[in-house]
Amino acid sequence: MSNHDLDPRIPLELLDPGASDPGYWSRFRGRVVMDAAPELARRRRFAEVTISDLVLSWSRLLVPATVATAAAAALLLFFTPEEPASALMDVEELLLWETVEGDGEALPAVFPLGDDEAEFELFLVAVEGLQ
């Protein structure tokens, strides 16, 4: 209370309930804090729940998401059809294939096996024939 700078002094302290009752403001504070107890308790609960709730909400999201991802990966792994192995061709076959497919003509009927020289000659004849 500082009304010392008033001249003449106005006795404003008469309006202060604490002036005539020293315990007034202490009781006032006690009453207010007591009346506020439910709201303070609610806020404390809310503050505590917020932290645990955060962890819980994370776990609620993360666990099913992880399980779903694992299941999807397993399904993909087991049910994806194998890619057909790429057909291997010899150089000669490739060359023939290119030539024949390119011109749309049929392959020579037979390449007899066993005689290398005869086979080679037949090959040349076939190639020449194609040309």
């Binding site: 403001w25 806020r43 809310f46």
Partner: peptide
């Protein structure tokens, strides 16, 4: 602190500004 339900902090505000 009062927002988080701290009784002493709220009491401090009451004490400071009740008059």
């Amino acid at each position: 602190r009062a927002r988080d339900g701290d009784r002493a902090a709220f009491g401090g505000l009451v004490e400071r500004y009740s008059r």
